[in-house]
Write a protein that binds this DNA or RNA. Structure first.
Lengths: 163, 163
DNA sequence: GGCTGATCTAGACTCACTCCAAGGTTGGGG
DNA sequence: CCCCAACCTTGGAGTGAGTCTAGATCAGCC
């Protein structure tokens, strides 16, 4: 995220009635810098950046921002929650069963049609969360012992910039 | 599950190379009796039924049965894992954000079309997991303080038989 | 610059597993 | 009917992810 984007972020927080703090800016930067980070990743990235931040502040901030709809929380089975700042465009996720890498995919059907279940049983549906499970090209090619690593940030992953 | 169904269950286990034990039968019965139970629910139901079973045995059994594809594990955000015996028919789930109640919904589109993402990015997709989030009719009607109860089995829930 | 509520901090705590170990029981093939 | 691998039991320790609490600090309005 560039210098001028920081001012934007500033406004974004204020618009939602949130105070602007160094911690919140760092968290937002960590998330927008790379999608699908875990709370722990974000904690370490933010700490590296601003020197001091507690993991609680990270959790608080992520919860606050998720509640305000600024961030989106994704919680795939067997994995800690991950966060992204791409909200409101109803895209979905594709996760590799072997290396747990997650990428975005656009909605298969179109605009927001995924929101329509065949029978909603009277529920007021506000979100359809779609997770495609499979294996990524690399894991299909070479099924090395990367299995079920609830990996932190790996060197390999570093190259996966925002999609 | 009725008396004669127990014989079926027997065969089911054997077919997958698993020994037939009282504990496994009790676990299977607890799951098929009502879908979407948690490991803890199953533990208590099974214990009530056969008198003695350790939580380890429940976890072992659930893991074994899930691995064999006899049960399906669902792990929604902010909730412990839940189990169901309705496998292989590609149905989805609808969860109330307020009371966490979960019900089945049939696939919105048809047979197994949910498996098709717009762009699979070279991934080999084998499952599409869809979770619809919303609020159930009761929580819409009366938003009482049931919020975010990671409830155990409540009296109210008892009436939700298999869908 | 002062005040006040929003936010941050450290650290204890909970929950849902998960993984031993070591001994006891039991299903089912031979 | 015997045997042994598969299974279960108690008990305890450990872990990852998140939650709670109480007190300190800070943003931003006046």
């Amino acid at each position: 995220m560039s210098r001028e984007a920081s001012a934007e972020t500033d406004v974004l927080l204020r618009r939602h009635g949130l105070q602007v703090t160094a911690q919140r800016l760092a968290v937002l930067r960590a998330v927008s810098d790379r999608a699908h980070r875990t709370a722990d990743d974000i904690y370490r990235v933010a700490r590296a950046e601003i020197g001091a931040i507690s993991s609680q502040a990270v959790y608080n901030t992520l919860t606050a921002l998720t509640d305000k709809g600024i961030l989106r929380r994704i919680q795939p089975a067997g994995s800690p929650a991950r966060y992204e700042d791409r909200v409101g465009d109803n895209h979905h996720h594709l996760i590799c069963r072997t290396c747990r890498r997650m990428i975005d995919v656009d909605c298969a059907v179109g605009d927001t049609p995924c929101l329509t279940a065949a029978d909603d049983s009277g529920y007021e549906i506000d979100e359809a969360e779609v997770i495609y499970w499979g294996r990524c090209p690399e894991c299909v090619a070479g099924p090395r012992s990367r299995a079920v690593t609830h990996h932190k940030e790996t060197a390999r992953e570093e190259k996966d910039r925002r999609v």
